[in-house]
Computed example of a mutant assay.
Amino acid sequence: MENNTFPQYFNLTMFVKLGNYRYLAFVLCLLLYAFIIFSNLVIIVLISREITLHEPMYIFIMCLSINSLYGSAGFFFRFLRDLLSDTHLISRTACFAQIYVIYTYASYEMTLLGIMAYDRYVAICQPLNYHNKITSKAVSKLVAFAWTYPCFSIATCVYLSFRLPLCGNKIPKVFCANWPVVKLSCVSTVINNLVGMVALITTVFLPLAFVMFTYIRIILICRKRSSEFKSKVVQNCLPHIVTFVIYSSTVFCDVALSRIDLEALNPFLAIILALEFVVIPPMVNPLVYGLKLAEIRKCVLKVFLRSEPVKTN
């Protein structure tokens, strides 16, 4: 096998020539990344320090924020550097490392949203059994599964892609992605496609179907209950629903974007559609939970206003 079938560098071709505007773009993106770090760190620190927030729902929210920091780091460190560079070559090793980080981030997000839906389902539909089912041990197992399974499934996909002999090195994105690399293959990719489909179904579609199932059950329960009960359910579930809808929409856009001819799109539109997958969820999640959940909002106000500790029932 010739060495040129395993290129040492990939070329990210979606970057457009911004001229002197690249410095403005760099500053804006740097500020955006700083906001993502700050807002998610606030959520993590508050939940870890406030005893009143040491409950399953808040632990899952903290895991989402940790995942946001993980995924955004895998993207922004390289992206900010490329904004100031005239060339957009990335080494083979760095490219596959970025693929692994971004894809595990995406999978973690969906599996975490799935177990959060289960938590809300038990709390609303089986309230008398909630503390028996959602114990500290159960939370630990659910979080461990949400992190462990995607870790190995994505590693398998990336390993199979890494072994493929390639007939090119151009990736039409602003970050490395698995499907564009697989499309460069000089040989059959049947195994890659099968393994990728299994990983996609188990880490995206199954959690997606489970979330939809839990909320259908919750809606059916709410139909028979009082207006006050419905109001409490909406207050508790709305942040999760908003997060889930936003993330599902960005994933859909990214999948659709990888299946179309990007050269036919306006380059700025193509970049925006590519960026939303790794930018919007980490930016929006802490805002949604920080503004919508009363306990987190109280703790934020307590920290910034330096008030006395807030007592909760």
Score class of each variant (00 low, 15 high):
residue 255 V to A: 10
residue 56 P to H: 04
residue 273 L to F: 10
residue 130 Y to E: 07
residue 233 V to K: 07
residue 34 A to Y: 07
residue 260 I to D: 01
residue 160 L to S: 05
residue 21 Y to M: 14
residue 294 A to C: 09
residue 4 N to V: 13
residue 238 L to K: 09
residue 111 T to G: 01
residue 293 L to I: 13
residue 48 S to P: 01
residue 276 E to W: 03
residue 150 P to Q: 00
residue 40 N to S: 01
residue 284 V to F: 12
residue 17 K to C: 09
residue 205 F to P: 02
residue 55 E to H: 10
residue 200 L to D: 11
residue 38 F to K: 12
residue 139 V to Y: 02
residue 131 H to K: 14
residue 301 L to D: 07
residue 168 G to H: 03
residue 68 S to E: 00
residue 161 S to I: 03
residue 223 R to H: 11
residue 53 L to C: 06
residue 217 R to T: 08
residue 55 E to C: 05
residue 209 A to D: 02
residue 111 T to L: 14
residue 130 Y to D: 00
residue 144 A to E: 04
residue 159 Y to W: 12
residue 188 S to H: 08
residue 44 I to M: 00
residue 265 L to Y: 08
residue 47 I to W: 00
residue 313 N to K: 13
residue 258 S to I: 05
residue 6 F to V: 11
residue 134 I to S: 00
residue 18 L to C: 01
residue 136 S to W: 07
residue 242 V to S: 05
residue 18 L to R: 04
residue 136 S to L: 09
residue 25 A to C: 06
residue 32 L to K: 05
residue 26 F to L: 02
residue 200 L to R: 08
residue 187 V to R: 10
residue 147 W to Y: 15
residue 204 V to K: 09
residue 165 P to Y: 08
residue 9 Y to C: 11
residue 192 N to E: 14
residue 227 S to H: 12
residue 104 T to I: 13
residue 99 I to N: 10
residue 203 T to F: 05
residue 20 N to C: 12
residue 107 S to R: 02
residue 24 L to N: 02
residue 149 Y to W: 10
residue 31 L to E: 05
residue 297 R to A: 00
residue 208 L to S: 14
residue 246 I to V: 15
residue 141 K to R: 12
residue 188 S to D: 14
residue 32 L to W: 09
residue 246 I to L: 13
residue 36 I to G: 09
residue 122 V to P: 07
residue 291 L to W: 00
residue 104 T to E: 03
residue 70 Y to I: 06
residue 133 K to T: 14
residue 195 V to R: 06
residue 166 L to E: 06
residue 255 V to G: 05
residue 68 S to T: 02
residue 145 F to A: 13
residue 215 Y to Q: 07
residue 206 L to T: 13
residue 119 D to T: 05
residue 311 K to C: 10
residue 53 L to F: 02
residue 156 T to L: 15
residue 104 T to C: 10
residue 132 N to H: 07
residue 128 L to F: 09
residue 179 W to L: 05
residue 175 F to L: 07
